[in-house]
Write a protein that binds this DNA or RNA. Sequence first.
DNA 1: CATTTCAAATGACATTTGTCACCCCTTTCC
DNA 2: GGAAAGGGGTGACAAATGTCATTTGAAATG
Lengths: 200, 200
Amino acid sequence: MIQIVIAEDQRILRGALGTLLDFEEDFKVVGEAENGEKALEIINRLQPDICLLDIEMPIMSGLEVAARLYEIGASTKVIILTTFARPGYFERAIKAKVHGYLLKDGSIHDLAAAIRNVMKGKREFAAELIMNSYHEDNPLSEREREVLQLAANGKTGKEIGAELYLSAGTVRNYMSEILQKVEAKNKVEAIAICREKGWL
Amino acid sequence: MIQIVIAEDQRILRGALGTLLDFEEDFKVVGEAENGEKALEIINRLQPDICLLDIEMPIMSGLEVAARLYEIGASTKVIILTTFARPGYFERAIKAKVHGYLLKDGSIHDLAAAIRNVMKGKREFAAELIMNSYHEDNPLSEREREVLQLAANGKTGKEIGAELYLSAGTVRNYMSEILQKVEAKNKVEAIAICREKGWL
DNA sequence: CATTTCAAATGACATTTGTCACCCCTTTCC
DNA sequence: GGAAAGGGGTGACAAATGTCATTTGAAATG
């Protein structure tokens, strides 16, 4: 019996997916979460065989959960299930050594088949991704990404500095670097560009 | 037997919804569409009792389909099923005299109940909408919205002025007004706030 | 051990934002 | 007809943002 945890913020999809996968004789959906934080907690507690993670969720994204699970060496196999074929997302998923990355416009049947394959030790990636992944490399360093992330929430340079234990000047330098790298003429444009490319 | 057509572009949700609603003894899912154009065609051909429409679909949005069905006086009852509680969307749906507007974070059970109620002649609206649309009125004027929209794409004050035939100073004044109205401390935060509230 | 490399910081500077007070036209409305 | 009201504008000023050159100290590479 393959034990599954589902993390997805749209309740209707989460419920539907849970019910349908539970119908398969060899699957058992043991937990559901509506955000990344809760997903992490449930996975740690229940140690399922598979977890399905949506990317864009409140509090903690599916990619962050995947990275965390990899860090702590969890045995649960991760499958990302998302609408977005953004190369940046894919890249980050690969870095977190996920076992699958599927798109929400496959059928449930495909999903079930992919889960079984992953349990056999294979990795499953949606074909569209391989195509798209002439990935423009994310040029931003980790630090730069953090800075831009906070800036995207409307924080000022000073506030960002306080949060990351940097001086306001250093934050400005990072921002300057970021603008050069993504060829933006100001913060706002940089945010727009990075959102679109999935670098944020 | 209640005949249902589902229009939703995410295949996995469309499939799941179709299967699950079909399990109810009094429902029969007679058609599915992955975009608005196809939905319109199917509805015209099959004349189902109910159609579930997602809003953001390729080619033709669910709102456009709803408006068209109202225009031609179709007998099929329309239920909008979407992620977005944006007052603007809701308003347009009301204009098209839809019979329901539900959010994707209700449960399938709620959805089934809503469909039965609509068949009895009731109208079903997600509670969040009523709250949002009365309480959180978009405080921005048309002009202000335009300015913020352009700013969100990374344009500078000068560029925005050029595009809207305003002086850079006036653009700054608008921006200042916007910041007061949405209680943001800078552009970026204002953009984040307005995006979240669906005012953009 | 010397040499690069790199994250972080500073300081100086030019520009861009954000705030404010006040002006100039039209409309609109007692 | 005169008072508001509202869209658009100006100029002045402070604060934040963006650019750059330069410094420091701690790895990493050789």
